[in-house]
Simulated scan of single mutants.
Amino acid sequence: MYTFFGALAFMIWGLVPIYFHQLGEMSPALILSNRIFWSAIILIVVFCLKPNLLDKAQCSVRNISLAFVAGILMNLSWLGFVYATITNNIMAASLAFYITPVFVFFMGFAFFKETLGSPQKIALFLMVFAIISYVYLDKQLPVLSLAISLSFASYIAIKKLMKFNTFGAVFFEHIIFAPLALWYILTHSEGLSVINWATLMGSAPLQLIPILLLSISILKTPLSKISLLQYIEPTFHLALAVWIYHEPISNGQKCALIIVIISIMVSSIKIRKTDNHNLASKN
């Protein structure tokens, strides 16, 4: 069930570009600010109705500080994602979230002592090689892709350190930044129509629901498995970029994606073998 929640979260995120592609005339910062503020409002209303959802014993300085850091990382990743979406660069977002599991894999191994077998090491090497190939062929670093992926992978790792329940973590990640978001909205919202406001407000539940699902999933799902579930999102992005929005794909992106897909196959084979082995052991 926890794995399903994680998969569902990444499916929703994979389809989000369809929604934000219609907001090309708005700044990413304004979209982000509305998402933060209206998400905070929703969470505050939920808290008022169900105060027991927030465990006051967990509201320590350490946990709130980690929520603050997690919020910054989440917002940075989301800002880059929105920018890529509304500037017709969904391919950059797709590549970013294909790369992200590498960072998650590594963080799980380095900071949480999760097992990293030979296939995972090969997959990690292939991911690095994919980035090198991109740089060589396109003569530039995939800066936007790397920024999105590194910030989101770090967000997942920080959430693993928090001792909040699901609601508590998401609650503080948003309300801490709500005042700043409100200030930006009030100073940068001239000339918006009713439809614009409705669309911006709609970004809150669209982002809040998968965050809640992912937060639930992370509670009981190893980062190694989370890293594999993440491939759902960029696959949806890739399909949208190629078949719906007909974005051009550079040679570097093509090469990197091919290598990344090979890397995914290596990692997936290992997971299936491990699962089968464990099942056999139980029998």
Rank of each mutant, 00 (worst) to 15 (best):
K121P: 07
I36L: 15
I122F: 09
A93F: 15
L49S: 09
L66P: 01
C48F: 15
I132W: 10
K139A: 15
I132P: 02
G80M: 04
F112C: 01
A57V: 14
M91Y: 04
T115I: 04
Y134M: 12
A123E: 14
F105C: 11
A70I: 09
A110W: 03
F129W: 13
I156W: 10
A92P: 07
S149G: 08
L150I: 15
L126K: 09
V128W: 03
F37N: 02
D55G: 03
A130E: 15
G80Y: 01
L137F: 01
F109R: 06
D55I: 02
I99Y: 08
V45N: 04
L79W: 07
R35L: 11
A40R: 09
A123C: 11
W38F: 15
L126D: 10
L49I: 13
F106D: 03
Y134R: 00
S65M: 08
L161F: 05
A110C: 02
S118F: 15
P142S: 09
V128D: 05
F97P: 06
T87K: 03
Y136Q: 06
M74S: 15
S133F: 02
S60I: 13
F129M: 11
K159Y: 03
A84E: 06
W38P: 05
M74E: 07
K113L: 12
M91T: 11
K160D: 01
L141A: 14
A57W: 11
V46K: 10
L43F: 00
S149F: 03
M107P: 00
L124P: 02
S145G: 07
L146D: 04
A110T: 07
S33M: 12
S154C: 12
F37W: 08
Y83E: 06
F109E: 11
S94Y: 08
F109W: 09
F81S: 03
A67I: 05
F112M: 01
S145M: 07
Y134I: 02
K56E: 11
A57P: 08
K56Y: 13
A93W: 02
F37P: 01
K139Y: 09
I44F: 00
D138K: 00
A70M: 09
F97R: 01
I86K: 04
S118E: 07
L76N: 14
S154T: 05
K160T: 04
P51C: 13
S33R: 05
R35I: 04
V46H: 05
A147I: 08
I158V: 09
V143K: 03
L150D: 07
A84I: 10
S118D: 06
E114G: 00
A147M: 07
L49P: 05
F47I: 11
L150W: 07
F103Q: 09
Y155W: 12
L53E: 06
S39G: 15
N52E: 06
F125L: 12
M162Y: 08
M91C: 02
I86F: 07
L66W: 02
F97E: 10
A130D: 14
A153D: 01
A153G: 02
E114W: 03
F68K: 06
L146N: 01
V82E: 11
K121M: 12
S151T: 03
C48D: 12
M127I: 08
Q58G: 04
D138A: 06
A70T: 13
L43T: 06
I86M: 11
L137K: 05
I86W: 04
